[in-house]
């Protein structure tokens, strides 16, 4: 066993931080997808991650479905739940204001959490790592192979989404709703369908985050709220509405959390991300990559 040097320890913190940060980044991207189309801050965003993890455990471990089938099946199921949230709750609010929408998504999130505790109980669940648990040694840092899966899926999701929004008609239609919903509906875009699609997409990416992180950090029913707050912190840090910002914000928040827990105080691990969120809200609410101009038009 070689000696643990400070440098290797720092590298360890960095890689752990980037991995956790990838999950926050995916949650933040999920926030942005819905926010861009609807100006809703979906407080239930973290529940998609929780559901992704737990449904995957159910399909893969309990039902014995192979990984290659359980993975897409989980994404589909969580996506359906995302669609149901829009169809059953959000769409029926008669006078949607930012105020009522916040409260509605909070309601949805505690209903989902309650159901999850009903179905899965309160214990955390483990999921086998995708490619084993033999740690890889890089410059003295010990790294689980699963870490690469998490970071890899963030990259895949980012590429897929940027192709979707820049190259496809539907993606461009969604971007149009983001710019101006009234104008979008004037040129024949079905805004309601775009809202539905935004919930579906956002649920899907949440599910991916949940599936990939569960082998590392386990998953239990009440993980959603904290993931949502941290993901929101990442979204605000990067600039609400900006996809590159969300990814950057997520990676930064994950790293701050990992270094903070390692070097300062592990008990306050969860507080670091929130303190960053407060600082950003107070001093630069438009975020690192957000534009002040856009934030002036938006209601939130």
């Amino acid at each position: 066993m070689e000696k643990i040097t400070l440098a290797s320890q720092l590298l360890q913190y960095l890689i752990t931080g980037l991995t956790v940060g990838s999950v926050y980044a995916m949650v933040a991207v999920g926030f942005n997808i819905i926010y861009n189309v609807t100006e809703i801050i979906n407080f239930a965003q973290g529940e998609f991650v929780m559901l992704g993890g737990l449904i995957m455990v159910f399909l893969h471990v309990a039902m014995g479905l192979p990984l290659i089938l359980a993975f897409p099946a989980t994404i589909v199921l969580v996506t359906v739940i995302g669609i149901l949230i829009d169809r059953l709750a959000i769409r029926h609010i008669r006078h949607p204001s930012v105020f009522t929408l916040i409260i509605a998504t909070i309601a949805v999130s505690i209903i989902i959490k309650g159901m999850a505790s009903f179905i899965w109980g309160k214990d955390p669940f483990d999921l086998p790592a995708f490619s084993g648990r033999n740690p890889i040694n890089i410059l003295g840092a010990v790294i689980q192979p699963q870490y690469f899966w998490v970071i890899g899926f963030l990259v895949i999701a980012a590429i897929a989404l940027s192709i979707f929004f820049d190259r496809t008609i539907i993606g461009k239609a969604m971007s149009a709703c983001a710019d101006n919903a009234d104008a979008a509906s004037l040129v024949g875009i079905n805004v309601k369908q775009m809202v539905l699609l935004s919930f579906a997409l956002s649920a899907a990416i949440g599910a991916v985050a949940g599936i990939t992180i569960t082998p590392i950090s386990l998953m239990e029913y009440d993980r959603g709220a904290m993931l949502a707050v941290k993901g929101f912190g990442a979204a605000v840090l990067g600039g609400l509405g900006s996809f590159p910002g969300a990814i950057l914000g997520g990676l930064i928040i994950g790293s701050i959390e990992s270094f903070g827990a390692g070097l300062i105080h592990s008990g306050y691990k969860d507080a670091f991300a929130l303190i960053v969120l407060l600082i950003i809200l107070f001093f630069k609410p438009s975020g690192l990559l957000g534009s002040t101009e856009i934030s002036r038009i938006k209601r939130f």
Partner: peptide, 20 residues
């Protein structure tokens, strides 16, 4: 600071503050 901002930044700031 959060009440000087538009919209419901207070919701998020208080949420984070409460958890801290």
């Amino acid at each position: 600071p959060s009440l000087k901002l538009k919209g419901h930044y207070l919701a998020m700031a208080t949420l984070a503050f409460g958890i801290i």
